[in-house]
Amino acid sequence: MNRDEFIKAANQAMPDLHAKADTANPDAIVVNSADLHGLCLWMRDDPAAQLTYFEFVTAQDWPDRDEIVLVYSLYSHPLGHRLMVKTALPRRDPQIETVSDIWEGANWSEREVYDLFGVTFSRHPDLRRIMMFDGWEGYPLRKDYTHPNLIHRPE
């Protein structure tokens, strides 16, 4: 199933989803963050999709558009196709529901996104910093992140 069939099937399954195709990424769809959890449940359980393999979740920080874009990547071994889901979150206090109850693999990836981007995942079982030690302040992978000993290349 390629991306357009996914969009048709998703919109059919969840009427108020309005999933759109993403411009930059050939096989990604864009969804607003509220109904992401519902979409993920559908993707795992729907016999046509069967996206049982959670690859990763990562984020992109767009300071000029003042948004953090979350990217979920899922793959299905039985059917052999992949789908990426993108949602946009405000930069100030990004908040989204966790998907670690659907796939346990998401547990650590979400912790990493929380640690490096500051996106808090509600109802996450063990939301702690994974890479940095607990007392670290600031989110390193954000574009506007500065640290005393961070040396920028001379332009």
Partner: peptide, 26 residues
């Protein structure tokens, strides 16, 4: 896996490595 985002400049905008040991550790 390597997830690469570029914004047209000569530097990658975001590059994420999906590594197997990360999920094996979990």
């Amino acid at each position: 896996g390597c997830y690469l985002v570029s914004d047209g400049s000569e530097r990658p905008y975001r590059c994420k490595f999906r590594t197997p040991s990360f999920s094996h550790c979990s």
